[in-house]
């Protein structure tokens, strides 16, 4: 939880694996790295067992690049595919019981605030749609109602992917899946609407076929959660296995779904805008100069 935890004990560097040395020497710690520079610095995510061509993997990869201070961040996850990648990064990862992630993150972020005072320590929850909208639904909503200051990211693949294709609250109506052979009978849940009602200061949808946008919404969500209140990002991260999308068509699918039901939406409270403008120099949120009064 500080820059020191990634550094080598003097004299021991030479015994460390190359990947580790590269990460310490050329990783993003203590620097400002951006999606536009990928391929030239060592990313903090290492190899993992996620499926080839998985859009969720791409999203998680971009998320790690977007963290404003990876050295001061803790990720929280739960059962589901995402944890297989989230846990393979040089950022401490807490594995909550299935559905507990927002409860665990609440305690963690409060504890960090007590321990470190004003020094920002970011807590980021990343969990699947089943873990968040079904099993962890109460804990998710209650953390928002309590205005817990951390970021919640739903990896929405519209299915229970890790357990082989059951429908979730986030599956679309009529969708036939391996373990929903008659098709889902109910509408996709409106978690975005609920996040707003429950008091999130920032709510956004995003699809990984726009890496720069993924980077921008994650940065904003984390920075706002530091002082203003809970933030929620809902990311479409298709399951190419359960939805039988050929891996080279995953980005085409992301584009189609973005145009269909995942159009970019961003909701930000005035308080959050002011916070980004004054503390982090977001020019687009600076108050507009008052228009010149026209003489009448």
């Amino acid at each position: 939880m500080s820059l020191d935890y990634v550094k080598f004990t003097p004299g021991f560097g030479k015994f460390m694996p190359k990947e580790y040395r590269d990460m310490v020497e050329h990783g993003p710690f203590g620097k400002k790295t951006a999606v536009s520079q990928v391929g030239t610095f060592k990313e903090i995510m290492e190899e993992h067992p996620m499926c080839a061509g998985c859009a969720m993997t791409l999203f998680i990869r971009l998320a790690f690049i977007a963290f404003p201070n990876p050295e001061d961040t803790i990720t929280v996850g739960t059962a589901g595919c995402g944890r297989l990648a989230i846990s393979q990064a040089a950022v401490p990862f807490v594995y909550g019981n299935y559905g507990d992630q927002n409860g665990v993150a609440s305690g963690l972020s409060r504890g960090l605030r007590l321990r470190f005072g004003d020094k920002p320590k970011d807590v980021v929850v990343m969990a699947g749609d089943g873990g968040m909208a079904d099993i962890g639904f109460a804990q998710t909503l209650h953390s928002w109602f309590r205005k817990e200051k951390f970021t919640t990211i739903m990896l929405d693949n519209e299915v229970y992917g890790n357990t082989g294709g059951q429908e979730s609250g986030m599956t679309n109506k009529g969708q036939v899946l391996k373990m929903a052979p008659l098709g889902k009978k109910f509408e996709k849940m409106d978690m975005l609407g609920m996040a707003k009602v429950a008091g999130c200061a920032y709510v956004a949808t995003v699809v990984p076929n726009n890496p720069r946008r993924v980077e921008s919404v994650i940065k904003k969500a984390i920075l706002i959660a530091r002082e203003v209140g809970p933030t929620y990002i809902q990311a479409y991260t298709s399951c190419n296995i359960e939805y039988a999308i050929p891996t080279d068509q995953v980005m085409q699918d992301a584009k189609d779904v973005e145009n269909d039901r995942y159009k970019f939406q961003e909701y930000i409270t005035d308080e959050a805008k002011e916070h980004l403008a004054t503390l982090y120099g977001y020019k687009e949120y600076l108050p507009k100069p008052a228009a010149a009064v026209t003489k009448g």
């Binding site: 999606v35 536009s36 990928v38 391929g39 030239t40 060592k42 990313e43 903090i44 995510m45 290492e46 190899e47 996620m50 080839a52 061509g53 998985c54 859009a55 993997t57 791409l58 990869r61 971009l62 790690f64 076929n209 890496p211 720069r212 980005m251």
Partner: peptide, 18 residues
């Protein structure tokens, strides 16, 4: 363009040599 480096799902896989 460097687009492929941003879209590969695997980290540290498509690298760039300027």
């Amino acid at each position: 363009c460097k687009l492929c480096t941003q879209y590969c799902p695997e980290a540290n896989t498509i690298q760039y040599d300027t």
